[in-house]
């Protein structure tokens, strides 16, 4: 297993294997996406309280899940960077950030679009939306730090530290925001809380969550391939690879 991982972490192998994997992942993503969309937009019945507006959930909730999940992946990769200094982990930590920021942005925008018909305004200082907004700032900090440091390997290690600090802080920030929210917010908070969700509504949600996970994997792989090719442009394996494709 370790042997396999080591081989995978070598750039030529990684480039080759990921290239072969991508079409399959893309097909699986497309399949899940179509299933999730049909289930969420067409098959699931309208919510008895929220009508058809609840269908925004199929974007909003998986995006919010992914925004947290990707931060965890970033912090995990950051730990690997600081302990074992594996180059591939550096790339994973660094290139997860823009994808995570995108999902955070999506969760915020769709939350706002969902909130308008439910709350009557585009924005309320709801605990979850507020935490998500702060999470976006954390992502922007990571991206800003990486772009500001010129030596990219040092930048990746700085990002690793920041991601680990962030991951320790996220629960503290979240619970303090929840606590603050219960003091300042009236009964609107409970609007989003659905006591029980019908199975026909839940299954598309899980499918969409799976699809978004696959999407993250695909987007990450594409960024890693690009980063490897750019960084190792002068290496022999790149020349061999291109010559092979030419033939």
């Amino acid at each position: 297993m370790m042997n396999f991982l080591h081989r995978l972490a070598s750039p030529p192998h990684f480039y080759r294997i990921s290239g072969r994997l991508l079409p399959w992942l893309g097909a699986a993503f497309a399949l899940l996406l179509v299933a999730g969309l049909v289930g969420g937009l067409y098959l699931a019945p309208p919510d008895y309280q929220q009508g058809d507006s609840f269908r925004i959930m199929y974007i909003h909730v998986p995006s919010a899940w992914m925004s947290l999940f990707i931060y965890m992946v970033m912090a995990g990769a950051g730990l690997i960077v600081l302990v074992w200094r594996i180059k591939l982990a550096e790339l994973v930590a660094v290139h997860s950030a823009p994808i995570g920021a995108s999902f955070t942005f999506l969760a915020l925008v769709t939350g706002s679009l969902w909130g308008k018909p439910m709350w009557g305004t585009w924005w309320v200082w709801d605990a979850r939306l507020t935490s998500e907004l702060i999470l976006l700032f954390l992502y922007l900090g990571v991206i800003g730090l990486y772009n500001a440091i010129e030596d990219k390997r040092a930048a990746a290690r700085a990002v690793a530290i920041l991601a680990l600090v962030g991951v320790v802080n996220i629960p503290i920030i979240h619970y303090s925001v929840v606590w603050w929210n219960t003091l300042h917010q009236g009964p609107t908070v409970t609007r989003f809380d659905k006591p029980a969700i019908a199975t026909s509504m839940l299954i598309p949600l899980l499918i969409m969550a799976l699809a978004f996970n696959l999407y993250y994997f695909i987007a990450l792989l594409m960024r890693l391939r690009l980063a490897l090719l750019e960084r190792e442009a002068g290496a022999r394996w790149v020349a061999n690879l291109l010559a092979e494709e030419e033939a």
Binding site: P46, D52, S53, I56, P117
Partner: peptide, 8 residues
């Protein structure tokens, strides 16, 4: 979308 088209 049951009237929610501008949001969905």
């Amino acid at each position: 979308m049951g009237g929610y088209a501008p949001y969905v």
